[in-house]
Amino acid sequence: MAMTRSTAAAWSLSALAAGLLLVGCSASVDVGSSEPKMSADKLADTVAEKLAATMNRPKPDVTCPEDLAGKTGTTTRCTLTADDGSTLGVSVTVTSVDGDRIDFDIQADETASPAPN
């Protein structure tokens, strides 16, 4: 039985979420400023690269709404969007800061949201 494109995309995002929940994911970036902060664009790119490497899949489309402040415990939410428009939330939490280096964990939601009609 063939899967519809939206079902396949939702399954793919759900599989991605399940995989990330099992393996976990973390990253660190040197930001090079006196007040450590990572731009939203740099964060989105880093999260996308890490997700792609963790799941051995092409780099997904990830957007983050705000810069990530380099303070332990700081969190933000990013969004992974599939080709069909379905989305998966991704939480980013700063785990440590060492000078200009910000270490953070990435945690995907368990379920994807369907594409808007």
Rank of each mutant, 00 (worst) to 15 (best):
residue 1 M to I: 15
residue 1 M to W: 07
residue 6 S to L: 11
residue 6 S to H: 09
residue 9 A to K: 09
residue 11 W to T: 15
residue 11 W to L: 15
residue 15 A to V: 10
residue 16 L to Y: 08
residue 18 A to R: 15
residue 18 A to M: 11
residue 18 A to I: 09
residue 20 L to H: 12
residue 21 L to W: 10
residue 21 L to V: 05
residue 24 G to Y: 13
residue 25 C to K: 12
residue 25 C to M: 08
residue 26 S to I: 06
residue 27 A to C: 12
residue 28 S to L: 11
residue 29 V to P: 10
residue 29 V to I: 07
residue 29 V to C: 07
residue 30 D to C: 06
residue 30 D to Y: 10
residue 30 D to L: 10
residue 30 D to E: 13
residue 31 V to E: 11
residue 32 G to Q: 06
residue 32 G to A: 02
residue 33 S to L: 01
residue 33 S to A: 04
residue 35 E to R: 13
residue 35 E to Y: 08
residue 35 E to H: 05
residue 36 P to I: 00
residue 36 P to K: 04
residue 36 P to W: 02
residue 37 K to R: 12
residue 38 M to A: 11
residue 38 M to T: 04
residue 38 M to Q: 12
residue 39 S to F: 02
residue 40 A to T: 03
residue 40 A to V: 01
residue 41 D to F: 00
residue 42 K to W: 00
residue 42 K to H: 06
residue 43 L to E: 01
residue 45 D to V: 05
residue 45 D to K: 04
residue 46 T to S: 13
residue 46 T to W: 03
residue 46 T to H: 08
residue 47 V to H: 03
residue 47 V to G: 00
residue 48 A to V: 09
residue 49 E to I: 06
residue 49 E to L: 08
residue 49 E to N: 07
residue 50 K to L: 06
residue 53 A to M: 05
residue 54 T to D: 04
residue 54 T to F: 00
residue 55 M to Q: 14
residue 56 N to G: 07
residue 56 N to T: 13
residue 56 N to V: 12
residue 57 R to L: 09
residue 57 R to D: 09
residue 58 P to Y: 00
residue 58 P to L: 03
residue 59 K to H: 01
residue 60 P to D: 04
residue 61 D to F: 07
residue 63 T to D: 02
residue 63 T to A: 03
residue 63 T to P: 00
residue 64 C to R: 02
residue 65 P to K: 08
residue 65 P to N: 05
residue 66 E to A: 12
residue 67 D to Q: 09
residue 68 L to D: 07
residue 68 L to S: 08
residue 70 G to A: 04
residue 71 K to P: 06
residue 71 K to Q: 13
residue 72 T to A: 13
residue 72 T to V: 11
residue 73 G to H: 09
residue 73 G to A: 04
residue 73 G to D: 12
residue 74 T to K: 14
residue 75 T to I: 04
residue 75 T to N: 13
residue 76 T to W: 02
residue 77 R to P: 05
residue 78 C to V: 10
residue 78 C to K: 07
residue 80 L to Y: 12
residue 80 L to D: 12
residue 81 T to Y: 02
residue 83 D to W: 03
residue 84 D to C: 07
residue 85 G to R: 06
residue 86 S to G: 09
residue 87 T to L: 00
residue 88 L to P: 00
residue 88 L to K: 09
residue 88 L to H: 06
residue 88 L to R: 10
residue 91 S to V: 08
residue 93 T to Y: 05
residue 94 V to D: 05
residue 94 V to Y: 03
residue 96 S to H: 02
residue 96 S to K: 13
residue 97 V to S: 09
residue 98 D to H: 08
residue 98 D to S: 10
residue 99 G to Y: 05
residue 99 G to M: 03
residue 100 D to F: 03
residue 100 D to E: 11
residue 101 R to P: 03
residue 101 R to I: 08
residue 101 R to Y: 01
residue 101 R to S: 05
residue 102 I to Y: 01
residue 103 D to A: 09
residue 104 F to I: 09
residue 106 I to F: 00
residue 106 I to R: 06
residue 108 A to R: 02
residue 108 A to C: 00
residue 114 P to G: 02
residue 115 A to P: 00
residue 115 A to G: 01
residue 116 P to T: 03
residue 117 N to Q: 08
